[in-house]
């Protein structure tokens, strides 16, 4: 049995990718299952999806803990999640990254295929939805399914839901990614510390769960503690403000849903705190003097 785990962010299509892969496997006459892991996910938050492929009927219904292959749809996840946890030593990794596989530090030396799927998706689909491109790369790295079956599965699955033209374009994205994928061995240097969790006993828990502001070993808790939750990894594009053009109308500060744009009244200035920017682009769209530009990459 070949088991896969998909790491992505809500909205990138990790769930669709797992389902499409399963469909491609079925087209080739195998048995396959695919299912997501559900939590309280918003668009942009880390999500998980799983797939199993076998020539026999599959009875296992659990999550995949010892994968043969891990697919990472967003390389910013590497900073916070140990994506290769439990992977078999001969397992492989498919990752959406601008870097060469030899430069990617996964904490383990593994056979790795890297593809800049975001660029492929932006070019072909005009949106940073990387699931079909990453499937092309997956076909190249593992060979578990043929690229032709992936194309066919993409065409039927996406074509049914979004129209034949979208299906064709997504199949093209998969094909281009298949050809562009670079395969190498990842670096195994970093040690990722898992974030500590606050796990109080029932005696320690306040009545009714009424928390007051406090600091624990795991960081802040209670009111205002979300400030420690950095969400910069969600963004594909980030805003840059041209100070010369800016008229300080403060509309961007007013509209920003995140609090990324901070006003400092004493200095009469605005500051952008990229730790919290999710890259929605409202500020660029609403700026009356076009002083804000959305720029791809880390600022």
């Amino acid at each position: 049995m070949f088991e896969l785990r998909f790491h992505g962010r809500g909205g990138q299509g990790a769930v669709m990718a797992a389902q499409t892969l399963a469909e491609a496997a079925v087209i080739e006459g195998n048995y396959a299952v695919a299912f997501p892991f559900f939590g309280a996910e918003r668009r942009g938050a880390p999500v998980l999806a799983f797939a199993r492929i076998d020539s026999k009927k599959i009875f296992s219904k659990t999550q995949v803990y010892v994968p043969d292959c891990v697919v990472v749809l967003d390389d910013s996840l590497l900073d916070t999640i140990d994506v290769v946890s439990g992977i078999k030593p001969e397992g492989s990794v498919v990752i959406n990254s601008k870097e060469e596989p030899d430069e990617i530090d996964l904490g383990k030396e593994l056979r790795t295929g890297a593809i800049d799927a975001t660029s492929v998706a932006l070019e072909i689909l005009k949106a940073p939805i990387t699931n079909t491109a990453i499937l092309g790369a997956l076909a190249r790295v593992t060979g578990i399914v043929k690229i032709e079956s992936i194309e066919e599965a993409v065409k039927t699955r996406f074509g049914e839901r979004l129209g034949a033209r979208v299906g064709e374009r997504n199949a093209l994205a998969a094909r281009i990614a298949y050809e562009k994928t670079v395969i190498g061995i990842s670096k195994g240097i970093k040690k990722l510390e898992t974030k500590k969790q606050w796990l109080p006993s029932y005696q320690e828990l306040p009545v009714g769960g009424a928390l007051i502001e406090g600091r624990t070993e795991a960081g802040l808790i209670g009111p205002g503690s979300f400030i420690e939750n950095k969400v910069s990894g969600w963004a594909t594009f980030r805003p840059v403000r041209d100070k010369a053009k800016c008229t300080m109308c403060l509309l961007c500060w007013f509209y920003c849903p995140e609090g990324t744009i901070v006003r400092i009244s004493d200095r009469g200035d605005l500051m952008t705190n990229y730790d919290y920017c999710k890259g929605c682009g409202v500020c660029e769209n609403e700026c009356p003097v076009d002083a804000i530009k959305m720029v791809r990459g880390r600022v």
Binding site: V231, P257, G259
Partner: peptide, 27 residues
């Protein structure tokens, strides 16, 4: 807008979707 308080009583780092209208209104 100019005389609104600087302080965020609804802090950054919440997990709403990018561009969320609810988050804007609440803040």
């Amino acid at each position: 807008i100019k005389t609104l308080s600087d302080e965020n009583l609804f802090t950054a780092g919440h997990t709403a979707c990018p561009g969320c209208g609810v988050a804007m209104s609440i803040r």
